[in-house]
Design a protein around this nucleic acid. Structure first.
Lengths: 207, 207
DNA sequence: GTCTATACGGGGATAGAC
DNA sequence: GTCTATCCCCGTATAGAC
């Protein structure tokens, strides 16, 4: 994706490398990291198990790499979406972004939440740092809204976590073709998030 | 717990059986079902691997049994707590109950949410049914509140799921000895849940 | 009820030919 | 870059002695 063309004649690496990652992501999400063998991944890719080690030094690094790239892309995608705006508009945009992005990349999201225990302590720290960085985007919006008096929350940090939890939970039940489409769900959540933040609440002594 | 005294002289089953379950619950929560071996469980219990099969026909049934008992106890505990009351009081009680119970039984909760993929289809269906039964307790409260005009929600089902997601997320970050204790956290969530349900919102044409 | 011993399969990872 | 072959270890589960 982000490299120039490789010139290795007769090589399949341009296709096999990404395929290994895609297959691993899918199988890890479906069965869990520990339950998936390198042989299974290889079979699905269409190579022998030994060939996978041209693309990762070991299984655990493959997992970390998937999680890491997912988190980096998540943050980059939000930063590309976010615009200078009012806190109310920003939090609505974040809500829509989070739901849409998480539903579009369900396998990667699932892995990033479920397979943390399979990471080495150092790798775990890296992923946790990225997650915190993402949450801070929302927390900063809420902080700004509170400062400007348009949000009324008792505890900014807890409100952030509660909202993240509420939004992420959508991935556990949403099914394409169900009663509501993504936009319909997002509309409902924008409204609920607004309520959690006390938007439009009765307040005294506000200009 | 719920059986009468066994009389088998010289037997340790009264202690080993529960210990197997406790150890398995702890290890499954910490490392994941697939990553934990029967040998590990046995070592922690202090018996040989073969001896575990006096208490479970196989590893997968042990997992199912832990999840099943947890869900049954969760529902029973709520039903014992719930009292005839106003929707507003009921939803506050549910919020406090859910947070306190989930924090008190974190290992079991974690397993029940994370290890669903390791269940056979039939076992999965049983656990899903129990989860639905639990969610329906909250959904019914919300439905009653809407019917009585004290809650204002756009979509009862989605509000139920959003609230469950918000409450369950507490287990991912709460640490004993942190800034807030369980009651303090619960207070904040009671307030946020109330907002999601539109308690005290401006309404026209309500008695 | 627990032990030892073991069957049998599959795990991650590497070596060396092509 | 991929293959075949293989190392060595560990997985679940069972059998039969005590």
């Amino acid at each position: 994706m982000q490299r120039g063309m490789a010139r290795t004649t007769g090589s399949h690496s341009q296709t096999t490398g990404p395929r290994v990652r895609a297959v691993a992501e899918h199988l890890f999400a479906k069965h869990g990291f520990a339950a998936v063998s390198m042989r299974q991944i290889a079979a699905e890719v269409g190579v022998q198990a030994g060939a996978l080690y041209n693309y990762t030094p070991d299984k655990q690094t493959l997992l970390f790499s998937l999680m890491h790239d997912h988190m980096v892309e998540l943050i980059a995608a939000w930063d590309a979406t976010a615009t200078m705006s009012t806190p109310t508009a920003s939090v609505a945009a974040f809500t829509r972004f989070h739901i849409a992005y998480h539903l579009a990349r369900r396998d990667a999201v699932f892995i990033a939440y479920m397979e943390l225990r399979n990471l080495s302590p150092e790798n775990f720290a890296v992923i946790e740092g990225l997650r915190k960085a993402y949450e801070q985007r929302l927390e900063q919006i809420i902080r700004d809204g509170v400062a400007q008096g348009v949000f009324v929350v008792a505890d900014t940090r807890i409100a952030t976590l509660a909202i993240i939890g509420m939004l992420t939970e959508v991935t556990t039940w949403f099914r394409d073709g169900g009663r509501l489409d993504v936009d319909g769900v997002a509309d409902l959540y924008v409204a609920m998030v607004g309520r959690v933040l006390g938007i439009g609440e009765d307040r005294r002594s506000v200009s």
